[in-house]
Amino acid sequence: MHFVDAKGILTGSGGRYGMNIYRGCSHGCIYCDSRSKCYQFTHSFEDIEVKKNAPELLEKTLKSKRKKCMIGTGSMSDPYMHCEKELQLTRKCLEIIYQNGFGVAVQTKSDLILRDIDLLDEINRSAKCVVQMTLTTYDDDLCRILEPNVCNTKRRIEVLEKMQERGIPTIVWITPILPFINDTKENVTAIMNECVRLGVKGIINFGMGLTLREGDREYYYAALDKFFPGMKERYIKRYGNDYELPSPNAKELTGLFRHICKENGIMSNPDECFGYMQKLPDKYTQMSIFDL
């Protein structure tokens, strides 16, 4: 872990803003796209870069905005990785978001988010909060291989349940689906059934497969060699160096996914899910006469 003074904290425009307090991750997911060389890490991915001035930058930035909006966090690096327990930078930023009347959409795999559930509840009451949780693998033994340094799927389901009890809307990412590993009807059905039981607002999936780029591919293949002997050769034979690796079962699984979502009134189109997360209710986005 190392600390830097960042020049800015929010990315985006037009009322769509994202925030990454950390760069890198300690969760160790074997498929993580953020390891890809295109993101130009100049340090080890596990050597977490901490933007120590993130709260100060965020407060200054939000005070300068005339119109309230949603702030997203967690798209590149999980805001609740292990160092957050001590540093509490995510919590400090959430407090600033709350104090300034903005909304937030948080994406994580960690149950550490429960530490801040009261604060997230307050944000949701005063503006809007959406909690997003990734669920890829219902089998916890397999989960420990694919996502070794973070809580298992059953615990993440408990987190979603606690958010739902508070009336905090939730979105599930059922991605990636790894060819020949978790791309089974049984796995997808089990996850989908839990989503239905919980009453999640939407489920995001990008075609029942995996994407691999330089940097990410090498790490993933090393994990395959370690945990699934012979699987790397199977991938290379079928996909070569393709960026998109759709499951052989993609058509069947996508049909199952869409059917369950439609039958239960769950958003399944990614654009619809993102649109929902990016929209702050009108009563909060209206500028007062003092903002003019």
Rank of each mutant, 00 (worst) to 15 (best):
K185V: 15
E158C: 00
T108H: 03
E122N: 12
Q107W: 01
D140Y: 11
D141K: 13
I157E: 01
E165W: 10
I171N: 11
K185D: 13
W173K: 05
Q107N: 03
T184V: 08
L94G: 01
K154T: 06
V159S: 05
A105S: 15
L114I: 07
I97T: 07
I177V: 15
S126M: 06
S110N: 05
G103M: 09
N124M: 11
L178W: 01
N182H: 03
Q107S: 15
R91D: 05
I181V: 15
N152F: 00
V130T: 14
K154N: 07
K92R: 15
N152L: 00
N124A: 12
G101R: 13
D111P: 00
E165A: 11
V159Y: 06
R166A: 05
L178C: 03
K185I: 13
C151L: 01
E161Y: 11
Q132Y: 00
N124C: 14
N152G: 12
V106K: 10
M163Q: 08
K185A: 10
I145F: 09
I177T: 11
M133N: 06
V104N: 04
D121R: 15
N100V: 00
W173D: 14
F102W: 08
L142T: 02
E158D: 12
S110P: 07
L94F: 04
R156I: 10
D116L: 03
E186K: 09
N100C: 13
Q99G: 15
P148T: 10
R156W: 10
I123D: 01
R115D: 14
L114F: 07
V131A: 04
T184K: 07
N149D: 10
I113Y: 02
I117A: 02
V106N: 11
I177A: 02
D141E: 14
R156M: 08
E165C: 03
G101Y: 08
E95Y: 04
K154S: 07
T170D: 01
E158W: 00
W173I: 14
I123G: 01
L94H: 03
